[in-house]
Design a protein around this nucleic acid. Structure first.
Lengths: 380, 380
DNA sequence: ACACTAAGTTCAGAAAATGAACAAATCAAC
DNA sequence: GTTGATTTGTTCATTTTCTGAACTTAGTGT
């Protein structure tokens, strides 16, 4: 079914996925096709169960009927290899999580493939149509992935080098599989399911133990020439600063990641186990806590300002798992962005903060499969 | 003639412009079309005078005939509003400069349009077909240009705000006209005519009185959400550093631009009027000259390293007008790039240095017109 | 009730691409 | 040399895809 969509059908699906429900006439105009052509394409997609009619909009003349993607026309499995046990979710085309379970993490790709195969049946029980309409598996991991979204070029965390993970999984359980870097997967999920649907060019900065970043440019995920676009964590932000595990010094990662913030706190003798703890200490006037949050916040803000200057994205989406962005850290980040972008642009680039739950990575992984279902691997 | 090209014809022209001469069969494979379809499309383009047969390649089986763009199937005029008098050139589809003249610069767009109209006849005399086959005028300027490449949103140098320059020129002299930011125009000219033809994603850093930068991403010029992609000159590189004319402090522009280098030299009491002079002083052991070049070089190198980390381009092309890159400045830039990119990537991104002549901007301007002729304004 | 408006459908015909057969131009081998 | 293998490029009937124009449908406004 996946491969049966024609080029025009794909385009239409893409437009709806970006813009939400549209009438046939609106879609015809957006795609530059005639009403006649649209009529047929829409009928076919409705017959296939991909589209369905939603609300009717009344105005002058005959009312228009909005068409939307049928959320349950396809299901996807997403697996995050960032945690142990590895979360494994079943999602529909809207990114709604239908079921959630987990599997043991391993460094052996064949063991992973086996665990996925064993976990699938119980996951698919969650919805009667899931087995039949399962359209792909997505896997998110920390590391570099090649352009075909099939091979892991390198992963320090998993100790991999040129591992054809997608092929291994595909062969083991017979389902189309794609893999992707964690931050890039989150960007795709925000574009498909999240708060960046209608935005063509934006960057996601994901704040967690490490700092990830990924760009959408002109409606497409931009992976970079070696799959390394968005490696903002290893931008030098404090020349000659603390050594980083990457081998350089003064990387953003050594100053602004949650891991770095916690380590700096420990080094200063603060008994803090979370960002909230440090924020609290800062709010009570603890000089060390204030210093740490200032340093981390201005470094992150400066990096984001550089990103804005270099790419002028339509949106910066900062996702974070821990704590909140209402405290000192968030304030400093915002200030640093403001003071380091060209005054003409200051405030022109929307900065959106989004607190995400533990499902981010698995949902991101599922979105990779959904993306390949909707748009297809080739950029047509 | 311009608008008469069909979508497939455009695609073909684009592929040849990127890859150089190709046989019909190769093009069919690249575009995913049948040999039968290619045969017709190629014949039409040859009849139109856009393509012509070049060399014959012998191998197993029937030899293949390479098709290439006919350089003189279209001519373009490029005008640079960066200098006074403003250079005005006539170029063919290969970027070859057929004729060169100049016109007085003005801040009044109507006066500019008038000057262009008056200058055109003598420029077009340089080639018998130029008048008939003139396919567009391109204008390069310092400032922000909107997505339609028609309106100058803002230019400090020209004192403009929302000036519909392209429309004014088009109406005055009846030729299709497009305008573009200077650095972006250079990037387009390198993609079409220069050393980045076959590269899909690259960044140009142009070093002159100021510092410009522009990106090609996935084969397309990326302008950014507000046309501000590539404003690397105003990345903060020395937090709290010297005030910049943009209103911030410590911008790259205040440290590494030729203007800044010369000003710093003057401030240090060096009697230098060009980069070569300062390089010479440094080579004789002048501490101030060495310090200045070190500071400027490491700042530029760090910025480029940030660019690599953020966008992972397939090539960084540094263009410069003055001096050479063989001296201390160039060495420091390269070193700074090396030490500030992720060690895994170090040396992976090709850095190409290109000394350009006084025609860069005008040639870039012409390339904007050529680009619109070849690829068309819409991204199909 | 009546025109008026705009959405969506139908259908014949135009446009673009395909597949298969074929012509053309060479190399390689005997 | 002649023959066969091989690959390029063309031709043509057929299929697929899109368009334009007329038409149906389902409302609003008076």
């Amino acid at each position: 079914m996946n491969a049966l969509l024609t080029s025009s059908q794909r385009q239409l699906v893409r437009v709806i996925s970006e813009s939400g429900p549209l009438s046939r006439t609106e879609m015809a105009n957006l795609l530059g096709l005639s009403k006649a052509a649209m009529s047929g394409i829409a009928r076919d997609l409705i017959d296939l169960g991909v589209l369905h009619e939603t609300e009717t909009v009344y105005g002058q003349g005959r009312p228009s009927v909005r068409l939307d993607l049928h959320p349950e026309c396809a299901f996807f499995v997403g697996i995050s290899l960032l945690e142990d046990p590895a979360p494994m979710i079943l999602s529909d085309l809207n990114g709604k999580i239908i079921a959630r379970q987990s599997m043991p993490l391993s460094r052996d790709p064949h063991v992973i493939a086996q665990a996925i195969t064993e976990g699938l049946p119980s996951l698919l029980e969650a919805h009667p149509d899931a087995r039949e309409k399962l359209s792909g598996i997505g896997v998110a991991l920390s590391g570099f992935v090649d352009e075909s979204q099939a091979n892991c070029v390198q992963s320090t965390l998993l100790g991999w080098q040129d591992v054809p993970l997608a092929k291994i999984i595909r062969e083991r359980c017979g389902i189309e599989t794609f893999i992707e870097n964690d931050a890039k997967a989150v960007a795709v999920s925000e574009k498909l399911f999240g708060s960046a649907r209608e935005i063509q060019s934006f960057s996601v900065v994901s704040l967690g133990d490490g700092i990830g970043c990924a760009h959408f440019i002109d409606g497409k995920l931009y992976r970079g020439n070696h799959g390394g676009a968005g490696e903002i964590a290893h931008c030098t932000i404090e020349p000659g600063g603390a050594p980083c595990r990457c081998g350089k010094r003064g990387c953003l990662d050594t100053v602004s990641s949650m891991k770095a913030i916690k380590e700096m706190s420990r080094a200063e003798g603060l008994e803090c186990t979370s960002l909230s703890d440090i924020e609290y200490e800062a709010s009570t006037g603890n000089a060390a806590a204030i210093r740490i949050l200032h340093r981390a916040g201005s470094a992150l803000g400066l990096s984001i300002a550089n990103l804005i200057q270099i790419n002028d994205p339509g949106l910066i989406l900062i996702t974070h798992v821990e704590g909140s962005f209402d405290g000192l850290f968030g304030t400093v980040v915002n200030q640093a962005i403001e003071t380091n972008v060209l005054p003409r642009y200051a405030g022109q680039t929307p900065i959106r903060i989004k607190r995400v739950d533990g499902d981010v990575w698995a949902r991101g992984a599922a979105s990779i499969a959904a993306h390949n279902f909707l748009i297809g691997p080739n950029s047509n």
